[in-house]
Design a protein around this nucleic acid. Structure first.
Lengths: 206, 206
DNA sequence: ATAATAAGTCAGCAAGCGTTTACTTCTAGC
DNA sequence: GCTAGAAGTAAACGCTTGCTGACTTATTAT
């Protein structure tokens, strides 16, 4: 059993509490949106006092920005190491909820993508998001073997919009059969989508 | 000029005030989300007192539900009269902001679609949304000349997710070139998208 | 062991929220 | 013209929000 193992785990660990807060905040911001999420709920779920949010992140917006920054590096890292043909398969696998784990709602990639679509009203945070999405669409264009002219960029962004829309519908509405679709069901449609928008025999055959 | 025309326009018109409130609320709910929108802002922008929202719609949630119901009939009506091939063209035209009008932000279809993605936390209102999206995806499947098995339904919902994602990115982030793309730029990518997901030579050629 | 400091808690603030109640002003029917 | 009732307003209500300052408790170094 897991009762009273060997790990000491200091009862007061600032770095760990910071991470706990980030973890809870990311999930709640992603699922409920910025305005609907309260700092008290975050603190309660993390098991710490509200005041620590102000201490570690200055403000609610500071915490949100920290979540977004983390999400950006997370999502960015996930796109570094993909080959040319396997994009759809990887995407399908990583979008279907928690391939290995038992817990139903623990998927950092999904929550990170959701965060990209949530807004706090602060224009400077939105700039962050914009810059990252722009960069991401360029990376997608390149990874699919395209040049990055305006037309291709537009198509890459439509692909991103599709993925974001799928994640949003799956996690906030629960519409069927989309929400229950697993890796196997998602792979082929995603492949078709990518091929149609950015595939080799796609948009250039005019 | 339009100064002091012939129309009398009673200074007190309950039905008209109700419509004004609905109009403002729809826009603000769609753009800022449910939690970030306050009844006072809505009332101020509509030029009436806050108490009237409670009178005409019982509560903030009542107003939101009324907006959503309107949006559902709006979006639903827009999909009734489309032929088989022109779907992409129509979609491109109606998604690009206000084809005819001068005003920049007046597009009922866009706001209606956005509302489908905004949630108030009330599960019964979410049911409304789910049912409509389900019906809409079935209609899309049929309009594209498909049967409505689970696989096709999934693909229709992915298409809907793509459209919703595009609308969301265009109106809340302003990422380029997606946000500035007009009818002409959107038509072909949308056509490719639809064809790949639900087209005749698409998903059945296994 | 003890002092210094980091980590965490507590209680309360000012402001904003959705909602309601009592009131005023306009409109329509006689 | 007068009046009943509809349409709209003003002000306050109880509550929640994000945030803060004074306080307590654990940790670490000497």
């Amino acid at each position: 059993m897991t009762t009273s193992g060997a790990l000491p785990r200091r009862r007061r660990d600032a770095a760990q509490t910071r991470l706990d807060l980030l973890d809870v905040a990311r999930r709640r911001f992603a699922h409920d949106g910025y305005a609907a999420t309260t700092v008290r709920h975050i603190a309660d779920e993390a098991g710490v006092n509200v005041a620590l949010i102000s201490r570690y992140f200055t403000s609610k917006e500071g915490l949100f920005q920290a979540c977004l920054t983390d999400a950006v590096t997370d999502v960015g890292r996930g796109t570094d190491d993909l080959g040319h043909g396997e994009i759809a398969a990887r995407l399908a696998r990583r979008l279907s909820d928690t391939p290995g784990k038992i817990e139903p709602g623990e998927n950092r990639l999904r929550d990170g993508l959701l965060l990209l679509v949530r807004t706090s009203g602060d224009e400077r945070i939105d700039d962050l998001r914009r810059d990252f999405l722009r960069a991401l669409s360029e990376k997608v264009a390149v990874k699919t073997g395209n040049t990055i002219d305006e037309s291709t960029l537009l198509r890459a962004q439509i692909l991103l919009a599709a993925v974001l829309g799928m994640v949003l519908l799956r996690s906030t509405l629960g519409i069927q059969p989309l929400s229950a679709a697993g890796e196997d069901e998602l792979r082929q449609p995603l492949a078709d989508l990518i091929d149609a928008l950015l595939g080799t025999r796609g948009h250039d055959r005019r």
